[in-house]
Amino acid sequence: MPGDRLKDLRPRPRVLMIGFAGHQGKEYLPIMRESADIVGGVDSAPPALPLAGEWGFPYYENLDDALKSVDFDAAVVTVPHGEHFPVCASLLAHGRHVIKEKPFAVTEPEARHLIRLAQQADRSVFTLLQRNFDPVFRFARENLARIGEPYWFSYDYHFNLARPTTGWRASWEQARGGVLLDMGYHLVDVLSGMFPEAPRVHSAFVHQYRETRDRGLEDLVGLMCSYPSRGLEGSLLISRHSLAKAEHLCVLGSEGALNVAPGAATLHAVGGAQLERCAPEGSRTDITRSMIAHYLERLEDRDYRRDHLLRQLATVRTIDGIYRDRSGGSSELAHRCA
């Protein structure tokens, strides 16, 4: 096909990996190399230097040195939440595209500032959210209309860690939140794609361990969401220390239901009869590969960029509103455009 031949003739993007020695960064290294040329890595952690040598790219202890020394088109940012904004702001000031781990930002003002910087630089800031590229969640989005008017959803997501949170997630300054910002960002983003109206939210924050309570980092959060104009209600329950690792989304509608879990999604008629099932054979790595290739191909796509930024602003606004109003118990998160 002519389009495929043109794509093959394009130069491969040159990518700088920031935070590449962490768990997430190391996962992206082999996948990124399939679609781009890794021209350098930035990470101050002790394992970073030998890892860069193993992968054969230049190592820089800080971003300023990398910006002075290497030319690149985009940076992949996988650093603690509290470091996201200054890193992204510096990259945009130097005219580089950004592909970053979630969250897009930790507060709504920060998200709006980041969007302004991206617009001024005419550069993309894409957020790495695998569920948006997972066939089972795509099946759910594409078949949502078949269940009629949704009136209820429940979305549960749990880890089964046996001990208190450790590493940078145990520091408020670095994590900037507990399970809601870390794990819950994925769930709120999924719901933003299915039900774009901003919800009213009642929240309950729970601390299993004294350490996380003292640092203001919730171990469990329960949310009750209301979408008044839709007649839709729903719940989210997110925790790090449950009995088993699990994820499950169920949406009930006037004409049926959708069930989504890792690896399979099903469409049901009223009464429970299964109408259709999606159970793709691909792996989590295949989903990540598709996501990264998708973003790299759209770095210069201004329309795609705009839609992505608005979606992320809605997700950040919802989470920031819940944190700000948690002591009051209820919040109405008004929808505003950037």
Rank of each mutant, 00 (worst) to 15 (best):
V188M: 15
V188R: 07
V188K: 08
V188C: 04
V188D: 02
V188S: 02
D189I: 00
V190N: 10
V190C: 12
L191K: 06
L191Q: 05
L191P: 01
L191V: 05
L191D: 03
S192D: 13
G193Q: 13
G193S: 08
G193C: 09
M194D: 03
M194C: 04
M194S: 03
M194A: 07
F195W: 07
P196M: 09
P196D: 11
P196C: 11
E197C: 02
E197W: 03
E197Y: 04
A198F: 06
P199S: 10
P199C: 09
P199W: 10
P199L: 08
P199D: 09
R200N: 09
R200F: 02
H202Y: 08
S203G: 10
S203F: 03
A204L: 12
F205H: 14
F205Q: 02
F205R: 07
V206C: 01
V206H: 12
Q208Y: 13
R210D: 13
E211H: 12
E211N: 08
E211M: 09
T212W: 01
R213H: 10
R213Y: 05
R213N: 01
D214K: 12
R215S: 11
R215G: 00
G216E: 11
G216F: 07
G216V: 05
L217P: 00
L217D: 04
L217T: 07
E218F: 03
D219K: 06
L220N: 06
L220I: 01
V221H: 01
V221F: 02
V221A: 02
V221Y: 04
G222D: 14
G222P: 00
G222T: 11
L223E: 06
L223T: 06
M224R: 14
M224G: 08
M224S: 14
M224Q: 14
C225F: 12
C225S: 06
C225A: 14
C225P: 00
S226N: 10
S226G: 02
Y227W: 15
Y227M: 05
Y227A: 04
Y227S: 06
Y227G: 01
Y227I: 03
Y227N: 07
Y227Q: 06
S229A: 15
R230P: 00
R230C: 04
R230A: 13
L232N: 06
L232R: 12
L232I: 09
L232P: 02
E233H: 13
S235Y: 09
S235R: 15
L236M: 15
L237T: 09
I238C: 02
S239A: 14
S239M: 11
S239N: 13
S239V: 00
R240Q: 07
R240H: 14
R240D: 06
H241I: 03
H241S: 02
